[in-house]
């Protein structure tokens, strides 16, 4: 893709987004219009600012269509970039799922094994249960990304993940009992 085509794509996306927003999104998703007249008083409505912002986006799109950039070399999104984003989203999704659900899952097994009588919700302020999701999810995030860069899974990556998680627990959790580590604010 040449620089002109990259500009054409970006400019058209910006103009298209602005048109859809101004014609459909903003009018249907704001409670008041651009200007509100109530009891003889005229005031700015909730649609004014978004309309102006999308107008700016459209203007930007037009400028991008016709201008030249100050830097050399085409800046554009490649298929490799899209593949990376999909991979990254997968890692983040896995992290979020493990962070959210491994604590309740392990606690459930603990209940079955007779280690505790309580569910995770009752134990989310109790060591070691409250750390389960953060330790497993956080370690997975760090180790996965390190493994992607190094193109192999290593014990070193897992160790770095565990150390990072331990350090964050020491910074956020131990001195401040009121702060909640993930996912204990959601459970």
């Amino acid at each position: 893709m040449s620089r002109d085509k990259a500009n054409l794509g970006l400019g058209l996306v910006a103009i298209g987004l602005a048109l859809v927003a101004v014609l459909a999104w903003v009018p249907n998703d704001t409670a008041t219009g651009v200007i509100v007249a109530k009891r003889g008083r005229v005031s700015i409505g909730d649609a004014m600012a978004p309309m102006a912002a999308f107008g700016l986006v459209a203007l930007a799109g037009l400028l991008i269509l016709f201008e030249k950039t100050r830097t050399e070399g085409a800046a554009r999104l490649s298929a490799a970039n899209v593949r990376f984003l999909l991979l990254l989203t997968g890692v983040f999704l896995l992290t979020m799922v493990l962070m959210r659900w491994s604590g309740p899952a392990v606690t459930g097994f603990g209940q079955l094994a007779g280690l505790t009588e309580h569910g995770y919700r009752d134990l989310r302020d109790t060591v070691p249960w409250k750390y389960i999701g953060f330790v497993i999810g956080g370690t997975t995030l760090v180790a996965s990304l390190m493994s992607l860069v190094e193109r192999r899974v290593t014990w070193r990556a897992i160790l770095v993940g565990l150390l990072a998680v331990a350090a964050l627990i020491a910074v956020f959790d131990l001195p401040f009992p009121d702060l909640l580590l993930p996912p204990n604010g959601d459970t």
Partner: peptide
């Protein structure tokens, strides 16, 4: 890299900030 790209960045930043705010009881966008 260009004024157009700078304005696009500003426009999108404004749009993102206006989501869910406003004075009406129903949050916008």
């Amino acid at each position: 890299a260009s004024v157009g790209r700078g304005l696009l960045s500003v426009g999108l930043g404004l749009v993102a900030a206006f989501v869910g705010t406003g004075q009406a009881l129903t949050p916008r966008l």
